[in-house]
Simulated scan of single mutants.
Amino acid sequence: MMNDINNNKWTRLKVAGLGELLWDIFPHGKRLGGAPTNFACHCQQLGAQAYPISSVGMDELGVEATAELNELGVDVSYVQVNKEFPTGRVLVDLDETGKPEYDILENMAWDHLQYTDALDSLARSIDAVCFGVLAQRSEKTRNTIQDFLLQTPSTALKILDVNLRAPYFTKELVESSLKIANVVKLSDEELPVLAEYFSLSGEVDQQLKSLRKMFALKHVAYTRGADGSVLVTQDGALETRGVKVTPVDSVGAGDSFTAAMCIGLLRGMPLAEVNKFANRVAAFVCSNAGAAPVLPASLKVI
């Protein structure tokens, strides 16, 4: 029996994307982005009440960012406005396969995220939160992220989207993030880094199982682009083949996978179906321009 994710029979989930909100600047124009922001936008489409938690500058790009989020129906109550630092920007180039390369500008508004009473209240009522390593490159935002995560209910999903972006990660930062998370999503490009950091050996499945056990994680999701994904749980590894599409650009595809996985887990979908659902959503995003295209109705049922 398939159910519309937005059907009133479902309790409205509260999820947050905690970290960077920025503009991806492409040669042909700009798009709103930042992995936690993309995550929130996709969760909103998939029926949750989603909150991006970040900061923008008191500038034109900041006004545009909040306006675009409003158009997407996303609540911007927790997007702070910083008077001293500009709205984040990332210069993006795409290779012939659509794979992005990034130049992430420093000392942006999202590097100065404040922990407030409002954030503390939200943290205590959240069903899931997604965070990454990149937004913790500054001490201020790192402290805010960790304070928020420490206040979430014990039942909440704390999803680490590893999302390594050189040179903004260290073993210590990755390790502290893994210790506070209970679900991890990483890619085939990121696993070798973690394998080296934490002496993970054997085939990929064994490395993922070792990582899950080492940090007492509920789930580890491993994405392989067009080759699908592996979802590791305490009961073993579930593998799903990728959905064949004609790629346009892969910006935001991983974030949409994380969002779909999050909603699937919160809704109690069978884990094999969670994996398939997340791949379907990510494949659609990869086949469209932009990090958060409007999802078709067929992807809003579980």
Results as ranks from 00 to 15, higher is better:
104 I>Q: 01
84 E>K: 13
45 Q>T: 04
92 V>D: 01
76 V>K: 09
109 A>V: 05
47 G>K: 04
88 G>K: 00
54 S>V: 03
26 F>L: 15
106 E>M: 13
54 S>H: 05
108 M>C: 11
25 I>S: 10
43 C>P: 02
13 L>A: 10
90 V>P: 00
15 V>W: 04
20 E>I: 09
75 D>V: 12
117 D>N: 13
89 R>A: 06
58 M>D: 14
95 D>I: 12
76 V>L: 10
132 G>D: 09
129 V>W: 01
107 N>M: 08
50 A>M: 06
64 E>I: 01
62 G>S: 11
83 K>A: 15
45 Q>I: 05
54 S>K: 02
100 P>S: 09
106 E>I: 11
7 N>T: 12
38 N>K: 06
87 T>M: 01
87 T>W: 00
6 N>L: 15
8 N>Y: 08
35 A>H: 08
54 S>W: 02
33 G>S: 10
70 N>Y: 10
26 F>R: 03
28 H>D: 15
5 I>P: 00
32 L>C: 03
105 L>N: 04
36 P>K: 10
122 L>K: 09
121 S>D: 11
50 A>F: 06
113 L>F: 07
20 E>K: 07
37 T>D: 07
6 N>M: 12
55 S>E: 03
70 N>G: 15
65 A>D: 06
27 P>C: 09
32 L>H: 03
114 Q>F: 09
32 L>D: 00
94 L>Y: 07
17 G>F: 04
52 P>S: 09
133 V>C: 15
86 P>K: 05
74 V>D: 11
106 E>L: 13
25 I>K: 13
116 T>K: 10
49 Q>I: 09
20 E>V: 11
11 T>S: 14
69 L>V: 13
31 R>G: 00
43 C>I: 03
90 V>Y: 00
15 V>A: 05
65 A>V: 11
117 D>I: 10
74 V>G: 12
80 Q>F: 07
71 E>S: 14
85 F>S: 07
82 N>Y: 02
77 S>P: 08
111 D>I: 00
62 G>A: 10
125 S>I: 06
93 D>A: 13
115 Y>I: 08
11 T>V: 12
69 L>Y: 10
107 N>R: 11
111 D>F: 02
119 L>M: 11
132 G>H: 07
21 L>V: 14
109 A>P: 02
128 A>V: 07
53 I>A: 05
51 Y>F: 15
5 I>E: 05
105 L>W: 02
97 T>S: 14
122 L>Y: 03
77 S>N: 14
85 F>A: 09
7 N>G: 12
62 G>R: 05
12 R>T: 15
57 G>N: 08
122 L>V: 07
46 L>S: 03
89 R>N: 05
21 L>N: 01
123 A>W: 03
91 L>R: 04
21 L>R: 00
56 V>Q: 04
23 W>P: 00
6 N>Q: 14
20 E>S: 08
116 T>H: 10
79 V>S: 06
16 A>S: 14
128 A>S: 09
122 L>D: 01
60 E>S: 15
117 D>P: 02
67 A>M: 09
124 R>K: 15
90 V>L: 02
104 I>D: 03
121 S>W: 04
18 L>S: 12
12 R>K: 15
115 Y>V: 05
89 R>H: 04
64 E>S: 10
78 Y>L: 15
96 E>P: 02
18 L>R: 09
27 P>T: 11
22 L>S: 05
109 A>D: 02
7 N>M: 08
122 L>G: 02
130 C>N: 07
47 G>V: 06
32 L>F: 03
34 G>K: 05
